[in-house]
């Protein structure tokens, strides 16, 4: 039987990460690795893009890299 994924890519999960600290797209992708969510790479990119568009996080550059963050 397939083991249930231990990580879920949801709006609430993304929100919690971005409230905690600013993250790059790569940081976020690391939190939702395909082997942990059970999603394909394409699904991960599409779902994460939809969630970020909806959350519309603040952006700032840290070390020349764009980071997203949310305030409560």
């Amino acid at each position: 039987t397939p083991s249930s994924s231990d990580v879920q890519l949801t709006e609430e999960a993304v929100r919690r990460y971005l409230i905690r600290k600013p993250m790059t797209t790569k940081d976020l992708l690391k939190k939702f690795q395909t082997k942990r969510t059970g999603l394909s790479s394409e699904q991960t990119v599409n779902v994460l893009a939809q969630i970020l568009k909806k959350l519309n996080p603040e952006r700032k550059n840290i070390n020349d890299k764009m980071h997203f963050y949310l305030t409560e």
Binding site: T25, L29, S41, T44
Partner: peptide, 20 residues
């Protein structure tokens, strides 16, 4: 692999660029 992560990050940023 890190190159797959790079590709995914690039794809995600490309999707978001239309929006941002």
């Amino acid at each position: 692999s890190s190159s797959e992560a790079d590709e995914m990050a690039a794809a995600l940023e490309a999707e978001l660029n239309d929006f941002m």
